[in-house]
Amino acid sequence: MLTATKISGQLEFLYGIMAEFDDPESLLAAARRAYAEGYREMDAYAPMPVEGLADAIGFRSNWVQRVVFAGGLVGAVGGFMLCWWITVIAYPHNVGGRPLNSWPAYVPITFELMVLVACITAVVGMLALNGLPQPYHPVFNIDEFARASRDKFFLCIEASDARFDPDRTRHFLEQLDPREVMDVPR
């Protein structure tokens, strides 16, 4: 039977099946059960960060800190080399007989450039790893999903998952005591 929110049987048009919850605790419990059930291709949506939620859906590797470390290193080395290159190579200038390589005076610029490059990589890296900016995503096809940025919590099991089956997955999600279960068209 096809309802407004149900398009099962037409797998190629289906992005996934989404369950809606009232509070972060139910979402967290549901995500844990879905993971235990063997689902891997899924995502949880909440209007604020929920502790443990990324873990529950099996998200482990967090590359952000590594990218930021690399950025900070590039900034610091670049900043120091910039000062060194200017004062020693490009524009040597004898100030009161002090050595050309007057490294203590390079510390502020080295530090500032380290922070600058690290901060820019933190934001750009975070957005890039998240795949943003992204003009279109199927989850927005559901009107109710607008509340994911307000007060509702969603769990979406995606059709690309190996264990995904339109009827069984829907049945499984219905057992988790959601407010509603919806099909997400692609």
Binding site: D43, A46, A54, F59
Partner: peptide
Amino acid sequence: NSARHWAR
């Protein structure tokens, strides 16, 4: 508002 996005 994806959990993965929030984590990063």
